[in-house]
Amino acid sequence: MQLTYLEAIRQGIWEEMDRDPSVFCLGEDIGIYGGAFKVTDGLIDRFGPERVIDTPIAESAIVGAAFGASLTGMRPVAEFQFMDFIGCAFNQISNMVAKTHYLWGAPAPLVLRGPSGGYVHGGPFHSQNPEMWFVHNPGLKVICPATPYDAKGLIKAAIRDNNPCIFFEHKYLYRRIKGEVPAEDYVVPIGKATIAREGRDISVITYAAMVHSALEAGEVLSQEGIDLEILDLRTVSPLDREAITQTVKKTNKVIILHEHSRTGGLAGEIAAIINEEAFDDLDGPIVRIAGLDSAIPFSPPQEEHYLPKVSDVVREARHLKGY
């Protein structure tokens, strides 16, 4: 059936709650209101207020409580109204949740999920892509799906995973992207990238909303005889090193594209992996396309300038083709 990205996530949570009584949701305004973006709409009527818990506006308490419940064998799914607010709970996530299995052998099967990303004029506190804060914390799995199929398969995989998973839902995609989602139960494996477009000439390594920008650029460039291969990472931690290496070995030219700011961004890490695994296969410089090194500005012309655009990919690909 055709589902939006948002409906796919809701269906994934719904099915997991139906399947496993140890799954429950908590977060701000997720119950009767159904969440700021309506991802959890209808869950409270089906599963009851015991399993769909409206919490105080207290992100550290939400993460702490989710972690505590997970220690008793529950599988909590905690919503952040916007992923920008995950910073309020950073200590719980970084120092408590991420380290717990390594330090004292306690698994923390929990999911922290919520909307991230720009292109909706949300301003500096409702548009961020804070995934790198967590990529730098060993012990967390960081998931950023781009399609309805992957969003549903990965939220289900995250709920079933025995480790803390941070699930970034791109709010620009919520209602803009529709896709085929099978009716039967399936999961998408965490840590595995997928080829969103096969091509010969240049690899674009990207994830989340940027996959769609890359696909659009791919259409434009195909008119000019430039054949992009687009690797959708799907999970940004742990990274699929093998898929990254394979695509580089195939095309020998790489653009890494992400929405968050350039310095200390994921592109730097991917470039380092390519350096380690496929240095001899490169026929040109590794190109980074990323957000500016500033906060995400509010005003639409400024936001547009800050964020990567289809035209950036087209321009960089044309340039890289010349090597």
Partner: peptide, 18 residues
């Protein structure tokens, strides 16, 4: 587990924050 009779979202296209 208590199961209500709710079968899905009330208003998928309801007003949303952004």
């Amino acid at each position: 587990v208590k199961r209500g009779t709710g079968s899905g979202p009330k208003q998928t296209e309801a007003a949303v924050h952004l």
